[in-house]
Each structure stands twice: as C-alpha cells, then as structure tokens.
Design a protein around this nucleic acid. Structure first.
Length: 551
RNA sequence: UGCCUGAUAGUAUAAUGGUAGUACGACUGUUUUUGGUGCAGUUUGUCUUGGUUCGAAUCCAGGUCGGGCAACCA
C-alpha cells in the first residue's frame, strides 16, 4: 500500500494537526439526523469521516443528531445503521444527541447565569423582524434585558411544561448587529410538546442544531467535525458556544456536498418522491439512496470506489452519473456470473440439427480463470433477440440476416437461410443451418465470424421478469432547473419486461451478481421468488453498436 | 446594498513560487466466442485585468461570474 495519492485539503489539515502535536490521535463522527434514509451524498461524507480515521489511525463515532422529535423515527435509525454496515464501516461508539439533553440543559443554564442567554416571549414573526436583514442591523426587544434570575426561572418553567409550544424561546445573547445573521441572538431552545423517539415525553423543550451539534462534538472529544459548505456561517456560532462553555474545542471543517446529474440528493425531496408515490419506497432501485442502490445491485465496493474518485474540495460540483456507472461496471465485470437471457425473442430454428438436444458448457466469467463453467442446454429451437436479426442488413451489421453467419455463444456457428413473417409482416422465425465442426472449444471449421449472439434453448427456457431502469429525471441539473423538480421526473424510468432465461438461473443463489451477456448487469430483486424470478438491471453494458447506430 | 465562500479540459480532481498531471467522458486503433473486457493512442484547461518575481494556477490588488446567509429544520 505505498500509494502516493495526494491528500485532499482535509487530510492535509489532519496530517498537520498530528504532525504539530495539536492532537495525538483523531476522532471523527458521522452525524445523520434520523429523518430519512441515507443516500449516495451521505456515502461521500461517510467515506470521508471513516476514511480519515482509518488513514490516520483514529476512530469514528456514529451520532444521531436527534434534536427535532417531530421529524425523527426509529425506523430511520435502524436503516441508517444497516446501510452503514452494508457499506462496510464500523463505528467505535453509537451516540445520540438526545443522550446529552441533560448536559445541554445545564449548558443553557450556565449561559443564562453568565448573562449570555435570555428567554424571549416574541412570536417567530416578531423575532424574524427584529433580526433585521443582511444589510440592516437587528433591533432588540425588552426581553433581552430580563434579569438573570428571571431568565433562570422562566427557563426552568419552560422545561416543566408551563408554557405552550412557541410561547417562549431561549436565545443566546450575542450581537444583534452582527453581519452574520446567525449571530443575531440565535434561538437555542424551543418548546415542543412532542414525543421523542428515544426520550419519549421526558422533555418538552429541545435544543436547536446550533446548541447541540458543537457541544455534542465536544462531549465526545471529536477532533475534526466535518460538514458541508452550507454550515460555514454556523462555524462562528459553533466556536462561540464552545468558548463560552469552556469545553473541549472541537473544530469544524467544511467540504462541498455531492451532486450527481439526473438525480436529486436532498432528503426532503427524496421523501417527497416516496410520499407522493413517484417511486415505490425509499429503497426503490431508482432512488439514489444506499438502500435503493443496494436493491438495484450496486456493490459496497463500487460505491466506496466512487467516493474515492470524486475527491473532496470546497467547490460546488455536479458529478456525471456515468462515473457511478463506470465504478459499478468495473467491479461487477470482475465478479458477475455470466448468464444468457433473451428479452424480445424471435425463434431460431436450426434446420440441420438432428441431435434434438445436447448439453454445452459456458464459462461463468471470462475475467476469472477459476470461475468454472456451467451446463447450458442447446436444442433445435432457440430464442434469440429480435434486434440480432435484420431482414436487410446494413454494412456494419455483424449479426444475423439472410446469408449471414454468426457464432452462438459457447455453441456453434450458424448461417441464416431464410425467415418467416406473420400476417402483420413481423419476423417470427429465422431458419438457419449450423456447422457441426464449429462447436465451441473444438472448432475445426476454420470459419471466422464477426458476431457472437446469446441465445436460450426454447424448450428449456425459464420465464423471468426484468426491471430495466433509466434515469429518474430528464434533466442533468435537477436541483438547478427552473421550477418544481417534480416537473422533470422521467415517467419512463422503469420498464418491466418478460424474458427467457437459461435454466442455470434457477439454481443460483439469491444474492448472486449477474451479467446477462450483451445486456447488462442484473441483481435479483427483493420481490423475486423461485417461482417468479425478478431481476433488476443495475447498469447496462457499454454499447458501442448503439452509439454507432445513432450516427 | 452587507457578510461569508469559491473559480484549473465536457465533468471531477492534483500540482502548495520551478515541466499543468490523473481519472471519467469523447474519439482512433488493436485484441476478443459479449459491438463487453483488456491494451495502445488522440483530444480539450489555469475566469479576467494589472502587479511582485529570473520564474505565478499558486503571492498581491481590482474586476467578473457561481454558491450560501434574514427556519422555534438539520
């Protein structure tokens, strides 16, 4: 592992902190709010935080940032843990911001005692108004001058539930004219008589993000607290709280969040897709969620590889979806079992094949010499792809057409003699003759053909269903497009197709990775059963022919 | 109008005052019983204007353009 890969700017910082002795070891954290499922954007953060710890010999906490009881659920906690494990990461401690509610309350009391916080009775509208605007200073109100004793008593009463939701808030007393709006006496506690997924009804006041996150980092002795760019203005508050409270000085660093073409990476929007039934669920294979990608057939290795390749920086970015596809193809090419499946079939009759049937053998993976072979039944009548026959072939067409020869993968070379159409003029059957001495592995025919087709013996064929996915949105930059993102949903993002498969698939394990030769990589869907096999297309193969045809 | 950020091929990312490199994409060629894979090659870039310097993507000043900031969300 003598990799000379250059460090990203955060690795650079950590490296310096370690070299200077500022820290003797590092502790990072991954802090999701359990209000949704993890997506590929989280994977970037996960790989960064866990990767940093791994690289520099530190550790990472998993911390649920659960300070808003109205949006958070245990279901999400469980899914987040499962996704993290699946991705291959282990946290050293499982933490919850809600475990710190008592401490956080004490911190707030300390602030009040220092005269640095006060209870405000204003409405949200009044507070917003009094905050001013980015270009004009805020104005105070009479509550700002309450005595410490009164604040202490009111805050205690807030905790006891003596006031209704929204009646009062606790605010840090900082600077109403600060150019950073977040420092204009931010709200640090609000009243919410809501059931919390972990603390139940113990609390009716909850700390705001800015009064919970930095302190949680500090309580856990997090050395490097890494978040996305939109938190840059929060850093001043983060530092302010730690300084006032005189607690462990965790430091916040920011990097730019991930964007990918033709999809969205916003929990809020993804939730909307689920709730409004544009997709079936959080783990719909079209979703950029970890669970969706898993169900679609992405491997943890390919996702980690993707996160490695995209890099970490502070510039806004939008990564081509094709990079994700490249990463998953690269991994799957090495591990996927090759199988033959025909989706849009026409019959191929081998007129001079008198044996009736025989068992042939085909390699499971040409990339893996140890991969072995499987038995594939061959017979007089086969299914081949409609697209592999052309009545009047064009010049560069390497497939079947009147007079043309091709190899049937792992079987024989055949030559098309004639074909038959139905009443509508649609080709139904192609007649061919085979070359007996061209048998795969013992070919003495001396014939060289340009094309090789996949096929399935008609009488041995297994009916299966294929879910073929396309991009979820019709435009590259969905978040940046005018208007509502839902206007750009690709209504044709899922095509269900009936197909014929070779019988080996019946015996394959549920979690096997497949390449259906010449079609793409496939993975068995969670709804698949032995009686009704269903496969999700993870990604197509690169298709130089399709590209050629577009010209 | 204020504050905070950022700007290197189509997309990302590196070079930290000394040869602008890498990956994906695109395009060629080659190998191949997958029009897949592999291999070889080509292609395109430092936002702008000044300054400092023997030398600037890098340092300085001005401009331009992008993103963020006025939730009792995180």
């Amino acid at each position: 592992m003598s990799e000379e890969k250059s460090l990203n700017f955060i690795e650079e910082i950590v490296s310096q902190d370690l070299a200077s002795g500022k820290h003797s070891s590092i502790l990072t954290r991954f802090p999701p709010e359990p209000n949704g499922y993890l997506h590929i954007g989280h994977a970037k953060s996960i790989c960064l935080n866990f990767g940093l710890a791994k690289h520099f010999g530190g550790a990472t906490n998993l911390r649920f940032d659960d300070t808003n009881p109205t949006t958070e659920e245990t279901e999400y906690v469980e899914s987040i843990k499962a996704d993290l494990k699946w991705l291959g990461f282990d946290w050293i401690k499982e933490c919850y911001a809600s475990d710190y509610f008592d401490t956080l309350y004490e911190f707030a009391v300390q602030l009040i005692e220092k005269g640095m916080a006060y209870v405000d009775d204003s409405s949200p509208e009044e507070i917003a108004l009094q905050k001013g605007t980015p270009t004009t200073a805020g104005t105070g109100n009479e509550y700002r001058n309450r005595s410490i004793a009164e604040n202490l008593e009111l805050f205690a009463h807030m905790k006891l539930g003596k006031f209704e939701d929204g009646a009062k808030v606790l605010r840090a007393k900082i600077d109403l004219a600060n150019p950073n709006m977040l420092l204009r006496d931010p709200i640090i506690y609000r009243i919410k008589k809501a059931h919390h997924h972990r603390t139940g009804d113990k609390w009716c006041i909850y700390p705001m993000y800015d009064f919970a996150h930095g302190q949680s980092d500090s309580i856990e002795n997090i050395t490097h607290s890494i978040c996305t760019l939109e938190f840059i203005p929060h850093r001043a508050l983060y530092d302010w709280c730690i300084e006032q409270l005189e607690i462990f000085p965790s430091k916040q660093y920011e990097f730019s969040r991930l964007n990918i073409t033709y999809t969205i990476l916003s929990k809020r929007k993804l939730l909307q897709l689920v709730q409004e039934h544009h997709v079936d669920s959080w783990d719909d294979p079209r979703m950029p969620t970890i669970s969706g990608m898993r169900r679609r057939g992405y491997t943890p290795e390919s996702i980690r590889d993707f996160c490695d390749r995209i890099g970490i920086a502070k510039r806004e970015n939008i990564i081509d979806f094709s990079l994700l596809e490249f990463c998953v193809r690269e991994h799957l090419n090495k591990i996927a079992q090759r199988r033959m499946v025909v989706t849009d079939p026409i019959k191929l009759v081998i007129t001079n094949y008198e044996k009736g049937e025989e068992i042939l053998h085909s390699e499971n993976n040409p990339e893996d010499t140890e991969g072995g072979v499987r038995a594939v039944p061959f017979s007089k009548e086969l299914w081949i792809e409609r697209g592999d026959f052309m009545e009047a072939p064009t010049k560069k067409y390497f497939r079947l057409g009147p007079g043309l020869m091709v190899r049937l993968k792992s079987a024989y070379i055949v030559q098309c003699d004639s074909f038959e159409k139905d009443a509508e003029g649609v080709v139904q059957t192609v007649f061919a003759s085979y070359v007996p001495e061209s048998k795969s592995g013992s070919d003495t025919s001396g014939i060289h053909v340009k094309g090789t087709l996949h096929w399935v013996s008609a009488k041995h064929a297994l009916p299966v269903v294929l879910n073929e996915y396309d991009r979820l949105f019709k435009v590259e930059d969905v978040a940046g497009a005018e208007g509502d993102f839902k206007d750009y949903i690709n209504e044709q993002s899922l095509t269900k197709t009936n197909a014929w498969a070779e019988p080996a698939l019946m015996a394959d394990p549920l979690d096997a990775r497949f390449q259906f030769i010449r079609k793409g990589y496939f993975y068995q869907d969670t709804t698949s059963t032995k009686g009704a096999l269903v496969f999700n297309r993870t990604v197509t193969l690169k298709d130089a022919w399709a590209k050629e045809q577009k010209k």
